[in-house]
């Protein structure tokens, strides 16, 4: 059973990919990890397959609620390539140069 089935009551998943709960995020903030990056390093939230697409703004909300920080001060995590997961066999291709506009 996943950590987040409704029956379990108040256990709320924030990062779905890594199954990090709201309580784990709050605990990290209480320990002093008050940026999205620091929380990622502390809890793994945002390190999964979707790379924080969903949880980033949820974590931002929680930080804003628990600290004095304004939302504009709670910066998103650094975006890293690739923007989509790529299989290593494809990644290893020499990478054709796209044939763009032969007349150009």
């Amino acid at each position: 059973m996943s950590k987040d089935q409704g029956k379990n009551g108040d256990r709320k998943i924030i990062c779905r990919c890594e199954e990090i709960t709201e309580e784990e995020i709050r605990e990290a903030i209480r320990e002093g990890y008050t940026t999205i990056k620091a929380i990622k390093r502390r809890t793994r939230a945002g390190m999964g397959l979707c790379q924080g697409r969903t949880c980033s703004s949820l974590i931002q909300e929680i930080i804003a609620e628990m600290t004095e920080k304004k939302k504009e001060e709670i910066l998103p995590d650094t975006v890293r390539p690739p923007l989509y997961p790529v299989e290593l066999s494809i990644l290893g291709q020499e990478g054709e140069e796209r044939d763009v506009f032969s007349e150009y």
């Binding site: 996943s2 987040d4 089935q5 409704g6 379990n8 009551g9 108040d10 256990r11 709320k12 998943i13 924030i14 779905r16 709201e22 697409r53 969903t54 949880c55 703004s57 949820l58 790529v86 494809i90 990644l91 291709q93 990478g95 054709e96 140069e97 796209r98 763009v100």
Partner: peptide, 28 residues
């Protein structure tokens, strides 16, 4: 297939992402 190129100008029109809301059971 991986393709590589360079561009003189790039226009990014990548749109929006849906925000989420968390509550117990939201991953069901």
């Amino acid at each position: 297939k991986i393709e590589l190129l360079k561009a003189k100008r790039v226009v990014l029109a990548t749109g929006g992402m849906e925000k989420s809301l968390s509550f117990p059971g939201w991953t069901l």
